[in-house]
């Protein structure tokens, strides 16, 4: 057991990551933040639209797209990967819709069939062409965020910006944030009330497919760092935590970003301490934050419930008791 959980040393866990020469951990933290923030922003809308599990499905099923793009482009060409992932994401949506509309299989089962099949196909392709693809099964599961600082540095006019994946992820996050701000009202209305959106002249299905495309792009750019499954947590956790704290969308979006920053930094320290997958640790940290908020809310929920019970126990109370308890 002692071997499993390394001794805690404040110096090693909290100081060294930031003082280490080369600043590798800073890039990891930044990468974690950008991934979680971008996923969280998109995820908020998935939660609002009750499509959290569509996010789950898409994040699994982009895998064959990425692998085929790898095989065809014969390199880590990000453009090819984006195209492959978008195609796979689109295919998933089409398969789910086809199964659901053309047979009596319900939507939940259709989702389950579509994404597991595509994911299985992706894993098989990886195993068959292991020598040609710079990917392995573990990477698919939890990514290689620790290798991010080792990537080539992007330079613009001699000025080093940072490792390529971080710069790319930052750009994606920025674009997602911009889109969310620009199309705030369209996203809000079509998520809340599609019928109203149509009457206001907002093309709901366009917004839907736009959101799906955004989801695919976010998932694929996060893929190398956190893999295909942990990304589900990053899609759902920030939004779920935020929606426990606030019911107003702008505040929720802000809280999402805050949750992303906190879970990235805390997760980094946790991962360094336990010497485990840092991406996994970031999700665990995010889960911790969620539980904290949830438990705090639980106290309130319990208080309310027990006050309800007082009403129930008083015999002959009924209406008058309910009225009394409200005053």
């Amino acid at each position: 057991m002692n071997e499993l959980i390394p001794a805690f040393s404040f110096q090693r866990v909290f100081v060294e990551p930031w003082t280490q020469p080369g600043g590798g951990f800073i890039w990891i933290a930044l990468m974690g933040f950008f991934v979680t923030a971008a996923c969280g922003l998109v995820g908020n809308y998935l939660i609002l639209r009750r499509m959290a599990l569509v996010g789950d499905a898409i994040s699994h099923s982009v895998l064959p797209g990425i692998v085929i793009a790898f095989l065809l482009a014969k390199s880590r060409n990000s453009m090819a990967m984006f195209v492959g992932a978008l195609a796979a994401g689109g295919l998933t949506t089409v398969i789910i819709e086809t199964i659901h509309k053309r047979s009596r299989v319900k939507q939940d089962a259709a989702i389950g069939i579509a994404f597991t099949s595509l994911f299985a196909l992706g894993v098989i392709l990886i195993s068959l062409f292991a020598s040609k693809v710079d990917l392995d099964q573990e990477c698919v599961l939890y990514g290689e965020i620790a290798f991010v600082p080792l990537e080539e540095i992007v330079r613009i006019g001699g000025l080093g910006l940072g490792p390529l994946p971080v710069v790319r992820m930052a750009a994606v996050t920025l674009v997602v944030a911009l889109l969310v701000i620009l199309f705030y009202k369209e996203l809000l209305v079509s998520s809340f009330d599609p019928a109203l959106a149509v009457s206001l002249g907002i093309n709901s299905s366009l917004v839907h497919y736009g959101l799906m495309a955004m989801l695919s792009v976010v998932v694929v750019s996060a893929f190398e760092a956190v893999g295909a499954i942990l990304v589900v947590a990053m899609l759902i956790l920030p939004g779920a935590t935020a929606s426990l704290l606030s019911q107003r969308l702008p505040l929720m979006l802000g809280l999402t970003v805050l949750h992303a920053a906190l879970s990235a930094v805390l997760g980094l320290h946790l991962g360094v301490w336990l010497n485990c997958s840092i991406a996994g640790a970031m999700v665990v940290a995010g889960t911790g934050l969620f539980c904290l908020v949830w438990v705090a809310g639980l106290f309130k929920w319990y208080a309310v419930r027990s006050s309800n019970r007082v009403v129930g126990n008083k015999s002959g109370g009924g209406v008058s008791d309910l009225l009394n308890s409200s005053t």
Binding site: V311, G312, G316, G317, G318, V319, L322
Partner: peptide
Amino acid sequence: HDLTVAYHKKPVLWG
């Protein structure tokens, strides 16, 4: 007798 039912703290049937 005096049946009261509430959904999410909102009474639907009173007494």
